[in-house]
Amino acid sequence: MNLNSNANGLAGLKVMVIDDSKTIRRTAETLLRKEGCEVLTAVDGFEALAKIAEHKPAIIFVDIMMPRLDGYQTCALIKNNPQFRGTPVIMLSSKDGLFDKARGRIVGAEQYLTKPFTRDELLGAIQRHVGQPA
């Protein structure tokens, strides 16, 4: 799939972005909407879990450092639910540590992106985990 094929491959794809930073949510939402994705956002894990159950996104991007329920806990809860175990979860963090990446793997995250992420990183993650032709 060509990442420049605007709105073709990703049109209608439900993507969830969970981050307590309004800037990050808005940036990701703008990038993904341009590609034709349907974007759901949440400020923390609690808000996200309710929306995930209702909307069933195809892929979830989750920030690690959040109040109340952090990204690791959120990812673990998603992966512990049989209905969403297969949903790819991509961790987002401003830290690029080996420990953080390992911890993300332990709770079941498919990938780890360091913030600030680029458009290509965001779309590349979607293509890698969802965008494969069936």
Results as ranks from 00 to 15, higher is better:
M1H: 05
M1K: 06
M1G: 11
N2K: 14
A7M: 11
A7R: 15
N8M: 10
G12V: 11
K14H: 11
M16H: 09
I18Q: 02
I18P: 01
I18S: 04
D19Q: 13
S21K: 09
T23M: 15
R26H: 14
R26Q: 14
R26L: 12
T27E: 14
A28T: 03
E29K: 00
T30H: 13
L32C: 10
K34S: 08
G36E: 00
E38M: 12
E38I: 12
V39M: 06
A42W: 00
V43T: 15
D44K: 03
D44Q: 06
F46S: 11
F46H: 15
A48L: 08
A48H: 06
L49Q: 08
A50I: 10
I52N: 15
E54L: 12
E54N: 10
E54W: 08
K56G: 07
K56S: 13
K56F: 06
K56T: 11
P57N: 07
P57F: 03
A58K: 13
I59P: 01
I60H: 02
F61N: 02
I64Y: 00
P67K: 01
D70A: 10
G71E: 13
T74M: 04
C75E: 04
C75W: 06
A76F: 09
L77Q: 05
L77A: 05
I78N: 00
I78W: 00
K79A: 04
N81F: 09
P82L: 10
P82M: 12
Q83N: 11
F84G: 07
F84A: 05
R85M: 14
G86H: 15
G86Y: 13
T87C: 13
T87Y: 07
P88Q: 08
P88F: 07
L92F: 03
S93F: 02
S94K: 12
K95Q: 10
K95N: 09
D96C: 07
G97R: 05
G97V: 00
G97T: 03
F99V: 09
F99Q: 13
D100H: 13
K101N: 05
R103D: 04
I106Q: 15
I106W: 05
V107L: 04
V107M: 04
G108V: 04
G108L: 06
G108S: 02
A109G: 02
E110Q: 14
E110V: 11
Y112A: 01
K115G: 09
K115N: 08
P116H: 00
P116V: 00
F117W: 08
F117C: 06
F117I: 00
T118E: 10
T118L: 10
R119G: 05
E121D: 13
E121S: 05
L123E: 13
L123M: 15
G124S: 04
G124P: 00
A125R: 03
I126H: 02
R128I: 10
R128G: 07
H129N: 08
G131S: 01
P133T: 03
A134Q: 02
